[in-house]
């Protein structure tokens, strides 16, 4: 790794000022699992690193007055996986965190880092988008909020302008009778980048027979996480028969815009979007064990 200047500010204002003052070569440090590796191998050449971990409040999981939750950007994946509050209100997120990296990586890697790196395969993005999350962004001109769906602009590209930081994710209150699942296709048991990720969230009616709302969000098959309204609409307001589930899976596969790369061909990715969407729906409808 090459030399860089290092700062560990104690306030958000100070961190933002440092990033603004040092311009494009300045990078914020959260968990470091991406930044440190990229700096070591020359994929990034930071001149300045601003460590965010000394700033109080960025790593809290805090209930909000409206019944929602504020998830600090520096909360680690391990904390999300074991948080009782998460497990109770947003089990989909706790479950997703457990599917990421290894114990070692989860102890370092943060939810904010996963989102801000904006890898198309970022596992946290599809379930958070399905849950209707908002990104809380703070910069030199104050705070703004953006729906997480709009946060991603392309691989490695986000809504953040230089000097701005993602400080938290805002989750709306959990909705009743809602079940979600995130399925991730990888070649090994763990420690692998998603070939395809599919998050499905269904809100059932009182009889648990019909979905009143449905969200389907795909990862790793487009430059950004992809919500598929045309697949969601098939599922809403009518019994979740096998035919409907298959139609939703077909529409999700059709919506995918995958690429060929070292991990997978585009063809295989598209096939697996259909397979995972079908499995996710089966799982949510029948309570069958996850496959």
């Amino acid at each position: 790794m090459r030399f860089f200047e290092y700062y560990a500010p104690k306030t958000l204002d100070e961190a933002i000022q440092l990033l603004v003052r040092h311009g494009e070569g300045a990078y914020p440090l959260a968990g470091g699992t991406d930044l440190v590796t990229k700096a070591r191998y020359g994929h990034l050449r930071p001149r300045v690193i601003v460590n965010l971990k000394r700033i109080p409040g960025l790593n809290d999981i805090a209930p909000e007055e409206d019944g929602g939750l504020r998830l600090g950007a520096l909360v680690t994946l391990a904390e999300i996986a074991r948080s009782l509050l998460m497990g109770e209100r947003y089990p989909l997120l706790a479950q997703t965190a457990r599917k990421m990296g290894s114990v070692l990586i989860r102890n370092l890697a943060t939810v904010g880092g996963n989102l801000c790196n904006a890898a198309p395969s970022a596992d946290m993005a599809p379930p958070l988008i399905a849950l209707g999350a908002e990104a809380v962004i703070v910069g030199p001109r104050g705070e703004r909020r953006v729906r997480l769906e709009k946060f991603f602009h392309g691989p490695g590209q986000t809504e953040l302008r230089h000097g701005e930081l993602l400080t938290a994710i805002r989750l709306p209150p959990p909705r009743p009778r809602t079940r979600g699942v995130y399925l991730k296709h990888i070649y090994r048991q763990a420690m692998d980048i998603a070939i395809v990720g599919v998050a499905v969230l269904l809100q059932f009616d009182e009889q648990e027979a019909i979905a009143e709302d449905a969200r389907i969000v795909l990862g790793a098959v487009a430059p950004t996480p992809l919500r598929v309204p045309e697949a969601e609409s098939v599922l809403i307001g009518a019994p979740l028969t096998e035919d409907r589930r298959l139609e939703a899976a077909r529409r999700a596969a059709r919506a995918a815009r995958p690429i060929d790369d070292t991990y997978s061909s585009a063809w295989y990715r598209r096939e697996m979007v259909g397979v995972l969407t079908r499995r996710a729906l089966e799982h949510l409808v029948s309570h069958s064990p996850e496959r």
Binding site: G32, T33, V36, N51, A78, L104, L108
Partner: peptide, 21 residues
Amino acid sequence: GACTVLVDGAPIPSCLMLALD
């Protein structure tokens, strides 16, 4: 994982943590 150490009891890969951190 060859470089695993515990930080406040939690195992992490020490190659990914800056010493100053």
